[in-house]
């Protein structure tokens, strides 16, 4: 039990660093969670070849919404929640696809379908995020790209663009919100972070 408490403390510290844009911390969290998420995705989807894709998608989201991480009480639950979300969402798309395949071309089932679907989950999501990014106003986009794509911290971005750190932080909050609502309009709805005392 003491061990669990230690792990939580360690993860909370990692989350704080990730929220600030620390890529090394993000990388460490990734490796810590791959074995756990591997099991989760495997058990939920039953597809070994979907594991990497979904794990990449989960971490793409964590990075996108990383400022939220400091408010998470139990990091593991939050990461698992997103992983469940993405795994079931893949199953939902797969089910819809299979139904269509049965209606239209009963003979064309099997490996071909899986290969096409394999392209979709992660690539599609990262494409949508880029699309959403391109719709941001010029300065907001620049701040967002320096933050999410280049991995700069708010202080570094502020110095680079000659803005106050608070301006950068406010802009990032607005941009993440706008990117997420774009994803939601495209059918990718992620769990909102609802914590007592917040929101």
């Amino acid at each position: 039990m003491e061990n669990t408490a230690l792990i939580y403390r360690h993860e909370k510290a990692l989350f704080e660093r990730i929220a600030e844009g620390d890529e090394d911390a993000f990388n460490a969290l990734f490796h810590a969670y791959v074995p756990l998420l591997h099991e989760l995705v495997m058990k939920v989807t039953g597809k070994e070849w979907m594991v990497k894709d979904i794990i990449q998608e989960v971490f793409l989201y964590l990075w996108l919404d990383r400022e939220k991480l400091i408010h998470v009480e139990v990091p593991r639950n939050w990461i698992f929640k997103i992983a469940y979300n993405r795994s079931y969402s893949w199953l939902a798309r797969q089910a819809a696809r299979d139904r269509k395949a049965q209606e239209w071309a009963p003979l064309q089932e099997g490996a071909g379908n899986e290969a096409t679907e394999h392209e979709l989950a992660f690539q599609e999501t990262s494409r949508l995020i880029r699309e959403a990014t391109s719709l941001l106003p010029v300065q907001a986009r620049r701040i967002f790209q320096l933050s999410r794509e280049e991995g700069l911290r708010p202080g570094e971005i502020a110095a680079e663009l000659g803005l106050s750190v608070q301006t950068v932080r406010n802009s990032l909050v607005r941009s993440v919100k706008s990117v997420k609502s774009y994803l939601a309009r495209k059918g990718i709805i992620l769990p909102a972070l609802l914590i007592m005392g917040l929101l």
Partner: peptide, 18 residues
């Protein structure tokens, strides 16, 4: 293998620029 997956994930996010 997983470090490569991580790098691919980060690269996809910044593909337009790097």
């Amino acid at each position: 293998y997983w470090q490569q997956a991580f790098m691919d994930m980060r690269a996809a996010a910044r593909r337009e620029r790097r």
